[in-house]
């Protein structure tokens, strides 16, 4: 069977589909999911290094506190907050709530605003704001 070179999702967004908050948040859910999955191996490394202590933990700390490490940590934390909030939105849809278009948009913007606020709050906590 001849397979025509049809464009496939998610590469439809842009040249064929106007970017909309619905599609962009959907693909962002996947993107953040992949990012967190990579971060999960960072968590495994942290736990392994902590269990070994000494040089292993010093090596981990050196990597985590480098500019690249700090950037990665911030990205994964922001991804985790977004995926957590948008995941609750998905679970509510699964339960049958909020599928009307106005509600989809309202919950979408709510997730975006809360993601920014919670990520900021988390880092305020991490950097000793509460102390």
């Amino acid at each position: 069977m001849a397979t025509p070179k049809r464009p496939l999702s998610p590469f439809m967004i842009g040249p064929y589909y106007r970017p909309q908050i619905t599609s962009m948040m959907s693909i962002a859910h996947r993107g953040t999911g992949v990012l967190i999955a990579l971060g999960a191996f960072g968590l495994a490394w942290w736990l392994l290094a902590a269990s070994l202590g000494g040089e292993a933990y010093a090596a981990f700390l050196a990597c985590a506190s480098s500019p690249l490490g700090k950037g990665a940590l911030f990205l994964v934390s922001a991804a985790l907050v977004y995926h957590f909030l948008n995941g609750i939105r998905h679970l509510l849809w699964d339960a049958g709530w909020g599928f009307e278009l106005p509600k989809v948009y309202a919950s979408g913007y709510t997730v975006l605003v809360l993601a920014v606020l919670l990520t900021a709050g988390l880092w305020w906590l991490a950097l000793g704001g509460a102390a």
Partner: peptide, 12 residues
């Protein structure tokens, strides 16, 4: 990843 994490938590 899960096994490494669990063993590390256990060891600690």
């Amino acid at each position: 990843g899960a096994i490494v994490s669990l063993l590390a938590i256990g060891r600690i």
